[in-house]
């Protein structure tokens, strides 16, 4: 199964979990699957229109996803890292 890697600031929404295995073939599937268990996760990643927040970046196996990020294909064993801007003076 693919694994979603949760960034430290978001682990409050996942009861402290850093890695969550989910069933899914796209990034959107994976986010939906995590959000089904941890509803507070979704608004941290997606805005009210269902788009990825500007301050959030998604990576598949270390490569940053571009274009239609949510439609990106995810295969068995892939790791999806969620990165969020976590500083700001």
């Amino acid at each position: 199964m693919p694994t979603i890697v949760i960034p430290p600031p978001y682990r409050g929404s996942t009861q402290g979990l850093e890695r969550i295995e989910v069933a899914g073939r796209t990034v959107r599937d994976c986010i939906d699957a995590v959000s089904a268990i941890h509803p507070a996760f979704r608004p941290l990643v997606l805005d009210a229109n269902g788009k990825v927040h500007r301050f959030v970046k998604l990576f598949r196996n270390g490569d940053q996803l571009g274009g239609d990020v949510l439609a990106a294909a995810i295969a068995e064993g892939d790791e999806v890292h969620v990165l969020a801007a976590i500083a700001g003076g």
């Binding site: 409050g12 500007r54 990576f59 700001g88 003076g89």
Partner: peptide, 21 residues
């Protein structure tokens, strides 16, 4: 430059997440 460049739109972009947290 090949990375996420989290501050490309300024530190003000963290307002929303800070509010959530």
């Amino acid at each position: 430059q090949a990375g996420p460049q989290m501050f490309k739109t300024g530190t003000a972009s963290v307002v929303f997440i800070a509010n959530m947290l």
